[in-house]
């Protein structure tokens, strides 16, 4: 399947439901062949944006352009977009093969051709031999694959996925993340993926757009988003983040003191300063709680002025953790390079 993928331009798209603003003048450029994830809590507007692209939500203003063509007012059936829905939306009254053939039949592809292409698509998602099954007889993972096959079979130039893995259990979900990414790399279709799972977003995306309250908070590569969040919201949404006043940190190189907030990821902390080469910062506190999580220990420290600091110590270098007692004084160290100062005005 050779697919010419297309870029997408979202220009100042706005959508309000009554007084509730779901999309607040969103603008976004997506390159041809890119895998972009819209990440955010429920109600952040990510699904509304996806449904606007699909044509099911009509924006109040702004425009949606796919491959140079304005599709803002185009009806959904004319958009040629492959969509994988949250609960798959497979047609229960049709067989697996009929589901996958459906978009081809609508495009007046000959019966034999449609069958051949549907079988190829099923093979691509590793469902050879499942064509005659009933949808009701499939497991969650298999339904997911049928939904994928149905969305790619007509060689759409853009793919939209709305939390496609949310109904699967953890192991299968992680497996499917790689499969979907592999499918994307094989086909090169421009893909917009919606999820509220930050780990999923980090694993799969070329770029992540973090959304909240109908606005894009930050759009960047996974590593940039994780390590250099622009706002407190992004920092906290992306994982165990400690947001501390910078002056709380004791720097050993006595560099320029700046005021403001700093973010340090829980896993950036070390208990043994010798593990860090170069300049480092230190935080003192008393241990309030500790928990063993298998791959790491989670320790909570309370600093003298009441701030909470969370440390994640990998199991491989956590020799002393089991013996710690609540109330014990501890000092945590982090390499100065891992301290990310949040830009001004990022307090929320």
């Amino acid at each position: 399947m050779a697919i010419t993928s297309l870029p997408i331009t979202i220009d100042r798209v706005r959508k309000a439901f009554g007084t509730y603003v779901a999309l607040n003048d969103i603008s976004l450029e997506i390159a041809a062949g890119e895998f972009l994830t819209l990440l955010g809590p429920s109600g952040s507007g990510k699904t509304t944006l996806l449904m606007a692209l699909a044509g099911f939500v009509r924006p109040d203003s702004g425009s949606l352009v796919i491959g140079g063509r304005d599709v803002t007012r185009l009806s959904p059936d004319k958009r040629d977009i492959g969509i994988v829905f949250q609960n798959y939306a497979l047609f229960p009254h049709m067989s697996v093969l009929a589901n996958v053939e459906y978009p081809l039949i609508l495009r007046k592809v000959s019966k034999a051709d449609a069958r051949a292409r549907a079988l190829t698509a099923l093979a691509r998602v590793k469902l050879e031999g499942y064509g005659d099954r009933n949808i009701a007889a499939l497991s969650g993972g298999q339904r997911q694959r049928v939904a994928l096959a149905r969305a790619i079979v007509f060689e759409p130039r853009v793919m939209l996925m709305d939390e496609p893995l949310s109904a699967l259990d953890k192991n299968l979900r992680e497996h499917m993340q790689f499969e979907i990414r592999r499918l994307h790399d094989d086909l090169g279709i421009t893909t917009i993926y919606v999820t509220h799972d930050q780990r999923e977003a980090l694993t799969m995306s070329d770029r992540i757009a973090v959304m909240d309250a109908g606005e894009i908070q930050q759009i960047a590569t996974p590593s940039e988003i994780y390590h250099r969040p622009k706002t407190r919201f992004v920092a906290e949404f992306m994982g165990e983040a400690n947001i501390l006043p910078i002056d709380l940190l004791h720097r050993d190189d006595a560099g320029a003191t700046i005021s403001g907030l700093a973010m340090i990821r829980a896993e950036s902390f070390h208990l043994d300063p010798a593990e860090i080469a170069g300049s480092k910062v230190a935080v003192k506190g008393t241990l309030s709680t500790k928990a063993f999580r298998g791959e790491n220990w989670l320790l909570n420290l309370k600093t003298a002025n009441g701030d909470e600091v969370m440390l994640s110590v990998p199991a491989t270098r956590s020799a002393g953790c089991a013996g710690f007692r609540p109330g014990q004084e501890l000092t945590a160290y982090a390499a100065a390079a891992t301290v990310h100062s949040l830009p001004e005005g990022a307090a929320r």
Partner: peptide, 13 residues
């Protein structure tokens, strides 16, 4: 499940 109707529309119906 009205998502099915949306699915059909997105597939070109």
């Amino acid at each position: 499940d009205w998502a099915q109707a949306q699915a059909a529309r997105s597939l070109g119906a």
